[in-house]
Design a protein around this nucleic acid. Structure first.
Length: 322
DNA sequence: CATCAGGGCCCTG
DNA sequence: CAGGGCCCTGAT
């Protein structure tokens, strides 16, 4: 699909805003059929708005203190002014352009140990690029699999059911719509070597297609209720719910579930030890960062993955199972 | 060659 | 609430 039309506008995030920290997460391992792309100061992704596939390009034209984003929307056919307004709102929601980080930054300032890290990434948002359905698919392929296998599964799915979109001289992919899988059998999904996850994806797609899940309404719920709703989804347990609560619904006061592989990394990051009990980690983090626990951990976590891009971190390499 | 755990979750007892 | 089973893959 070639998106040969475009409209451009400016958005001004609430300062501070950290462009590269927000639009590139080195801890996320990219698959081959890319959904998004980044280089310093520039970001591209396919964008699902309703049933429509658009191209999104965001260019940094401001500073951390005076942020300014030049946003281009690529499309085919016509794009009404009302639609464009909706898109602006959606972008603001997803990338939390209007969120006030004052309280969090004040908290960070009092943190003797990690203040340099918080300062370096001040204004960084968590990245919520996808619709709830798209992120669910990603969460499901992450389950009980190493990085490489997750990549394989996602590539297989996108290759078969995704859409290639071309805009701004780039080719990216967009994930299918839930109803697209109506005619696809579980066996057909299994043939992509995604194993028992085929059942999850099949049922999740049905539930979304049948409007049993309302993303807009989920965004209005408080953390506990949102979590309760997410866990009800077939194939979604505590860890997948945690990902969704943080990345899709922007809840920061979540730090109850710690997976074994995360425990190992947290142990080194926060204690310099091989393995600290999860209860200790949980208690210490909550005491230090309270309702911003997940966000604070996100800063420290991404920071070490940024470091990994330029230097070898032996202990981390051992914990990242490719 | 086999065995096994892994960026979890469902189901059963 | 504990524990077995699940699809596949790469590691051992």
């Amino acid at each position: 699909m070639k998106l040969n039309q475009s409209k451009k506008f400016i958005l001004t995030p609430k300062p501070p805003f950290h462009f590269d920290g927000t639009f590139h997460k080195p801890s996320h391992f990219p698959n081959n059929l890319k959904l998004d792309d980044w280089e310093s100061g520039k970001y591209w992704q396919s964008l699902r708005i309703g049933k429509r596939i658009l191209g999104l390009k965001i260019v940094d034209v401001g500073t951390t203190a005076k942020p300014k984003l030049s946003v281009s929307i690529f499309y085919k056919g016509v794009l009404s002014p009302a639609e464009l307004e909706g898109i602006k709102k959606e972008i603001s929601w997803r990338f939390e352009l209007d969120r006030d980080f004052g309280e969090f930054n004040a908290l960070a300032k009092k943190d003797k140990r990690f203040y340099p890290v918080f300062k370096k990434w001040m204004g960084m948002r968590n990245l919520s690029q996808y619709t709830l359905y798209e992120l669910l698919i990603i969460a499901v392929v992450l389950q009980n699999a190493t990085v490489r296998r997750s990549q394989q599964m996602l590539d297989a799915l996108i290759g078969k059911y995704g859409t290639k979109v071309e805009f701004d001289r780039r080719a990216l992919y967009a994930i299918w719509l839930p109803e697209d899988l109506k005619v696809i059998s579980e066996q057909e999904l299994r043939d992509l070597r995604i194993g028992y996850r085929a059942k999850f994806i099949k049922r999740l797609s049905e539930d979304f297609a049948n409007k049993k899940v309302d993303e807009v309404q989920l965004r209005t719920l408080d953390k506990e209720n949102a979590k309760k709703e997410l866990i009800k989804l077939y194939g979604i347990g505590p860890e997948s719910a945690r990902i969704l609560l943080f990345e899709a619904l922007h809840h920061y006061d979540i730090f109850d579930h710690i997976a074994p592989w995360q425990q190992k990394i947290y142990s080194m990051l926060f204690y310099g030890k091989k393995l600290v009990p999860t209860n200790t980690i949980r208690k210490d983090i909550l005491k230090q960062y309270g309702k911003y626990s997940m966000l604070a951990v996100h800063y420290i976590w991404e920071n070490v993955f940024w470091l990994r891009k330029t230097q070898k971190i032996d202990w981390l390499e051992n914990e990242i199972r490719l």
